[in-house]
């Protein structure tokens, strides 16, 4: 069947608009990448757009030679991996339990989870709780408090509910225990949703700085997001009005650009590998039928 003329016009317009959206989305990224290879004076003069001016890699060498940066970077990788593992373990098992309609206390378990979506203890009580548990200044303060995202939990629950219960009954008849069913039947069938959840959690933990800011008081524990945030927001305000000269100095914009590129890069690389699960994963549970 040939497309009608109107439809073809629509497709062209659609393509142009979407290309525009792509450009608008990509431009800041490309601009930062261009800045990261540019000379400071060109950036200051606002001349750097998509092509680096005064091309150099010295800024990269400078930032990569900074041990504070690499230590923070290592921390971020560690926190992300451990936190994602814990989060996946807890979220999967929790979601599996509350997806079983017949289980006693299911309403209560769902209620407990959903309650935290709407109410929380507030900042200071949370801080007091974490510090009296003795978690401050340790990795546990980062990886435990946000281990279960209720949104992710509900998406997973919906996915598990959609698996045909006949499969599990068959497995039961063949002699599998509850854990056997979960590990050998349900999880292998849930790769799409698991991949999506891993991506969701990993990106969240990679980007998060607030937990670390609250609960960590030692520089050697800071994740790279804190380092980056301090670099960008720390010395760029005029709030240090009237203080000594050394305090007013700002961080050069090409150093900021390089740090941003290096921080974004790894998590950006994860996307292509997970993408094929991604769309199906997000759609799962959205439509029943």
């Amino acid at each position: 069947m040939k497309d009608s003329r109107g439809y073809r016009v629509f497709q062209i317009v659609n393509g142009v608009v979407l290309l525009g959206v792509v450009f608008v989305t990509l431009y800041p990224f490309l601009n930062i990448i261009a800045q990261s290879f540019s000379g400071e004076t060109f950036i200051r003069a606002g001349q750097v757009n998509l092509v680096p001016l005064g091309f150099n890699t010295t800024t990269y060498q400078l930032v990569m030679g900074d041990e504070t940066f690499w230590r923070s970077y290592g921390n971020t990788v560690l926190y992300t991996v451990v936190a994602t593992a814990i989060a996946m373990l807890l979220t999967t098992t929790y979601a599996y339990v509350i997806s079983k309609k017949g289980i006693r206390g299911r309403g209560l378990l769902i209620g407990i989870a959903v309650f935290t979506m709407f109410f929380n203890g507030g900042l200071i009580p949370n801080y007091v709780l974490i510090s009296s548990l003795g978690l401050t200044n340790s990795i546990w303060a980062i990886v435990l408090p946000n281990a279960i995202s209720v949104f992710n939990l509900l998406v997973m629950k919906a996915f598990f509910e959609n698996l045909p219960s006949e499969l599990e009954e068959a497995a039961q008849i063949d002699g599998l225990s509850t854990y056997g069913i979960l590990l050998r039947i349900v999880l292998p069938l849930s790769k799409a949703v698991i991949a999506t959840m891993v991506l969701f959690y990993a990106v969240t933990f990679w980007n998060s700085w607030f937990q670390a800011f609250l609960y960590l008081n030692q520089q050697e524990l800071f994740p790279v997001t804190i380092y980056l945030r301090n670099l960008i927001a720390g010395a760029s305000t005029a709030s240090s009005l009237g203080s000594g000269g050394g305090d007013l100095a700002q961080v050069a914009s090409n150093v900021k650009a390089v740090t941003m590129v290096l921080t974004v890069l790894p998590i950006l690389c994860v996307y292509p590998f997970i993408q094929r699960y991604f769309v199906s994963g997000v759609m799962l549970g959205s439509v029943k039928g």
Partner: peptide, 15 residues
């Protein structure tokens, strides 16, 4: 020292 990034120093102090 209890180390706080300069970017959010005030907030942490209040906390």
């Amino acid at each position: 020292p209890t180390i706080v990034p300069m970017s959010d120093y005030e907030q942490k102090r209040s906390l």
